[in-house]
């Protein structure tokens, strides 16, 4: 694929991602909201694909759309006593607003401060899976292992929390 991204598909997918995200926020049915989130994740995978990040796109599909979103749906459906409970009013109160604004500010701050500047020139060929794997397991091996350790701790904690240990 050429280094310049085709603008029209990119714009369509970008708008789709944003539109689905907005629909997720505005839909009053929690199950519908979860499905909108999923649609947003799938169109993000499409964006990655357009940017020649094939591996990232597939992982996005496999992990976020295929597992995380499904898990969210699963939990939502499990915790609903009746189908009618799925419809909730949107909370416009002040604390909710404050929470939303502070989260948005945090996200903006992190994006602006942590993401490196966009490089002036792109490599002519997008790196493949092999290069990605080598890079991940040589240069970035320590952060990678650390992340997996944190996830493991979270997993063990979740198992303990959900009543695996008998509390006398």
């Amino acid at each position: 694929m050429s280094p310049t991204v085709a603008l029209i598909p990119f714009a369509i997918l970008g708008l789709l991602t944003l539109g689905c995200a907005a629909m997720m926020l505005f839909s009053r049915n929690v199950v519908h909201a979860a499905f909108w989130m999923l649609a947003s994740m799938v169109s993000t995978a499409g964006l990655y694909l357009l940017l020649s990040a094939e591996f990232l796109a597939l992982v996005q599909l496999l992990v976020y759309a295929g597992a995380v979103a499904v898990l969210v749906l699963f939990v939502v459906m499990l915790t609903l006593r009746r189908r009618a409970d799925a419809v909730r009013p949107i909370d416009f109160s002040l604390p909710a607003l404050a929470l939303a604004v502070s989260f948005a500010a945090l996200a903006c701050f992190m994006v602006l401060s942590l993401v490196p500047a966009y490089p002036d020139s792109l490599p002519s060929v997008a790196p493949g899976v092999t290069e990605l794997g080598l890079e991940l397991f040589s240069t970035w091996v320590l952060p990678f292992e650390l992340a997996s350790l944190i996830l493991l701790v979270a997993l063990v904690g979740a198992v303990w929390w959900s009543g695996g240990v008998k509390r006398s």
């Binding site: 591996f55 992982v59 599909l61 759309a65 499904v70």
Partner: peptide, 13 residues
């Protein structure tokens, strides 16, 4: 291979 698994993971949805 990853593509096939990735696509198939959407079926449960």
């Amino acid at each position: 291979l990853l593509f096939t698994f990735g696509i198939m993971s959407l079926v449960p949805l």
